[in-house]
Structure formats: structure tokens, C-alpha cells
Nucleic acid binder design. Sequence first.
DNA 1: AAGGCGGGGGT
DNA 2: ACCCCAGCCTT
Length: 349
Amino acid sequence: MNFQNEIVKWYKINKRELPWRNTTDAYVIWLSEIILQQTRVEQGLPYFNKFLAHFPTVKSFADATENQVLKLWQGLGYYSRGRNMLFTAKQVMEIHNGIFPIQYEKLIQLKGIGEYTAAAISSFSNNQSKAVLDGNVFRVLARYFGVEEPINSTTGKKVFSELAQSLIENQKPSVYNQAIMEFGALQCKPKSPACNICPLQINCYAFKHHKVDVLPIKLRKLKVRERWFNYFVGIENDHILTKQRKPGDVWQHLYDFPLIETDEKPDFEEKSFIEKVKNTFGKNVQITPILQKKHLLTHQIIYVQFFALDNYIINFNLHTDIKSVLLEDFEDLPHPKVISDFINLYIKN
DNA sequence: AAGGCGGGGGT
DNA sequence: ACCCCAGCCTT
């Protein structure tokens, strides 16, 4: 039995029951695929159910506000996915008459849909013969066929892409695509894969050559930036100070607190730091440390320090990015995880 | 071609 | 501590 047939046979026995597998509705599949980008199934599943319940159709999605979408997205990360979904939903209403496209060539033109997602939606909803190429597929192909080209090099992508596409010929695209990804997720896992019970063990290059733990090969180490976020929590008369984050940085368009950022550990007693605080909150301001936390992102380590503000005065004409909003309205806004955790601990009740 | 963009889980 | 997850966009 060849590679593809073994994979599909394995899939039919071992596949998980997942809600987006019981539909050919391109809108529903799109929802699941965007949510699952760089996200584990277990983490994305509750978000998929939430989004489908709130937005059963692409029209209902297109009618949402960005704050609504980001609030539902809160805690999932990579928030540009949510913003792009809103943009794309509106675009589908305008240029596709509200019918979500099912062809690769149409899908690839939509914002937030790249080669992987276009292949996934077009094959799952339309049985178009486009091979998906995600982290799972890279791994399975690299190991089984012994491809030593780095998966994130230009030639590597080309090699894997052509290999993947050649394998899907004469297969049922929808089933085969899901099968190879599921195989990578459950059987041919990144760490300690279950080679001892693997139906493809006999012909697997990596198993034969003891390279299971070196394939696939990936280049580049991420350099992690360290940042210090000093947040100032000002609450007065049921109102709280907040600020919407700007483009070009993490948590774009989400709401946090007035912030003084430094690129090294600040000395809270030091003159320049005190000066900055007084410049924004007035010279009589008192600050009290509440909580510090180390917030880890893939590419950044953010040391977060929360201060309580007392006796503060803000010139909102000078600091136009800072707003004062009702506490109950503030809680309804979308926040980064580190902020929503803080709210739940120190502000609610 | 390289870097930015979250949060969580596995080893 | 490091890697990876149903990747994509911008520069």
C-alpha cells in the first residue's frame, strides 16, 4: 500500500470528531481555519463554537463591529486574524454577493487567507485538488520521504510544496488533506512520535536512518526582545483610564491602560521615571505598586508592572490617546490577556 | 528574505 | 529553556 492509502486508512480509524468536519459550508470552514492558524485544536475549539453561535452567517459577521470581534477573540492571540476576518466578511458581502467563495483562486485573494488556508477551504468545501502544507504536513513529508531541505527556506518551501501537490493527485482531496494533517497531529508528533505503532514505519526514511528527532529541519532562532510595561491604573467615580493600542505593535486596537514603557528595568525612585509620571498625571500624583508579572510572548518577554494612581490630573487635550470610561463599559472592551487577568483579579467586585 | 504577530502546551 | 501549534502580512 502506498503512502497516501496508508494515511487515509489510518485517518478513518483514528480521526477525531471535530465540528468543522461535518460541513461543506465554506463560511464555517473559513471560521475554523482562521481560528486554527498557529493554534492547537483544543485551544481553538471553544472559540470556534463561540464565533459560530454569534455569527452563524457571513452576513452576520460582516455586520459586527471590530470591538465585538476582538472581544470574542480575546485570549486567542494573533489578533490580526480577527481584524482581517471582519474585513474579509465585508468584502465577501460586497464582491461575492454574500456567497463565500470555494475556489482556490478566489480565496487566495481574500485578506487573511494564504496558500494553506485557500487550499484547506477549497479542498474541504469543493474537493479542489490543492494540497495543504502546514506544520503537520512539513513534518510528515520530511520524515517519511527524508527531505532535508529546511522547511522555512525558499527552496525548501518549493520542494515540499511540489511533493505535497504530487501526492494529492488521484486522491479525494478533502479526505486526504485532513488525513495527512491529522496524522501529523496525533501520530507523527513533533516530540516523541509513536513510531512503534506507526503503520508507515517500514518505509519511513527518518525511522530507518534514526533521524526522527532531527527532521524536519528548520532554520533561524528567534531573538526575543525584552520590554518593561509600566501600567497606571486610575479609577475615580466609577470611571477608569484606558488607552487603545496603536498599529505597529503587539495587541493592535486592544484596550489597555496608560503606559510608560522602558527598554530596561526601570528604577521607580529615579528622577526621570518620576518626571514622566508627573508629566502625564500631574505633580501631586501618588503611585503605589500593585502587582508585577512576567508576560511571555513567542517573540517578546514583557515585564508588566501595575501601579495604582491617586491624586492624578490628566490634561486630555494633551494626552489625546487616554480616555476615561465607565468601569462596566471598560470590562466589555477587548483587552490583552495580561490586562483581562488583572481586571478579573483586582477590579471586578 | 526576514521579521512581527499571542497564548498555551509538551518535553 | 526551547520548540511547536490546521500561517499570514508587511517591509
